[in-house]
Simulated assay, not measured.
Amino acid sequence: MGIKIGWIADRIVWKNSFLEYRIKPNEMHIWRINIDDFINQTDFLIRLLNNSEIERANKYFRENDRIRFIVSRGMQRSVLANYLNIPAAELRFALSENKKPYILNTNPDNVRYNISHSGCWILLAISSTEVGCDVEYVDPLLKFNDVIKDHFSTQETEYIGKDNSTKKFFTLWTRKETILKATGEGLGDILRSVPSLNGEHPLPDNISGHNSELMLLSFNLDVDYVASVASFNSNTFPLFIDAGFLNKACY
């Protein structure tokens, strides 16, 4: 048991329409949401938020940050509500001990999700098993040598140092975060022991679910954005969906 890690080398076809909000046992639905696509719908999206979310939105000093929060929470509710077939405003969420979000509502289809943000992008992964995801902007100005020393193995450090180092660093970083989000560990002092290179690896004994099988895929979310998703199903089929089509309707 362990984890299979790979890269989707071919060009991803992002679906621009979607009708069946139903997770099959071997599927993982991977949504990308561009915040800029929904800036003009904040008046609608804020009506989907609960009181604590609205209060949090209003605490942002910069209007751009407030809008980003409203779009992120509103779109999360909008998409997940379709899978659970309940009004978006009625969705209730909670956090695990390690701050992993989960759905409190009655959930007969066992919908699981995870969400990540970077720049103008939101990545939302949905599955019938525990799932993790992470997206990062490939920042060419980031000085990451100290991070590598503390959180990457010798083999990972050698891999990053060969060529195209910045993208390799962010790819491996998303993988480590994704694995820990899928297992529910949260970031901590065990990043160095979490595998991130292509191939099949055992999971450390101190990680929840180390006796299970995970599958992790990395891909380009957009230009200069790299992402990873992981699911507790080694035969998962990923379906890539661009949420842009939703801004043409009230959902």
Rank of each mutant, 00 (worst) to 15 (best):
L124I: 10
L124P: 09
L124Q: 11
L124V: 08
L124Y: 13
A125L: 08
I126N: 01
S127Q: 06
S127P: 06
S128Y: 02
S128F: 00
T129D: 09
E130W: 04
E130K: 14
V131T: 15
V131M: 07
V131P: 01
G132M: 05
C133Q: 03
C133H: 00
C133E: 03
D134Q: 03
D134C: 00
D134M: 01
V135R: 02
E136L: 09
Y137T: 04
Y137D: 08
Y137L: 13
V138N: 03
V138H: 00
D139M: 01
D139I: 03
P140C: 03
P140M: 09
P140V: 03
L141Q: 14
L141R: 15
L142N: 12
L142G: 00
L142E: 06
F144W: 02
F144E: 03
N145A: 13
N145V: 12
D146N: 15
D146A: 13
V147M: 12
I148H: 04
I148K: 09
I148M: 13
I148N: 02
K149R: 10
K149E: 13
K149Q: 13
K149L: 12
D150T: 14
D150Y: 13
H151F: 15
F152C: 08
F152K: 07
F152I: 04
S153R: 11
Q155D: 15
E156Q: 03
T157E: 15
Y159E: 00
Y159F: 14
Y159N: 00
Y159V: 00
I160W: 05
K162L: 03
K162Q: 12
K162V: 13
K162T: 11
S165G: 02
T166G: 00
K167R: 15
K167V: 14
K168M: 08
F169W: 03
F169A: 02
F170M: 06
F170N: 11
T171I: 03
T171F: 00
W173T: 05
W173K: 01
W173Q: 04
W173L: 01
T174C: 10
T174G: 12
R175C: 02
R175G: 02
K176R: 06
K176A: 09
T178E: 05
I179G: 00
I179P: 02
L180F: 04
L180V: 02
L180A: 01
K181Q: 04
K181S: 09
A182K: 02
T183N: 07
G184V: 00
E185R: 11
G186D: 08
L187H: 07
L187V: 14
L187N: 05
L187Q: 01
L187D: 04
D189R: 12
D189L: 13
D189K: 13
I190L: 09
I190F: 05
L191S: 07
R192V: 08
S193V: 12
S193H: 07
S193D: 14
S193Q: 11
V194N: 05
P195D: 08
P195I: 07
S196M: 01
S196F: 05
S196D: 08
L197H: 10
L197Y: 04
L197D: 06
N198W: 07
G199M: 08
E200Y: 11
E200D: 15
E200R: 10
P202T: 15
P202F: 08
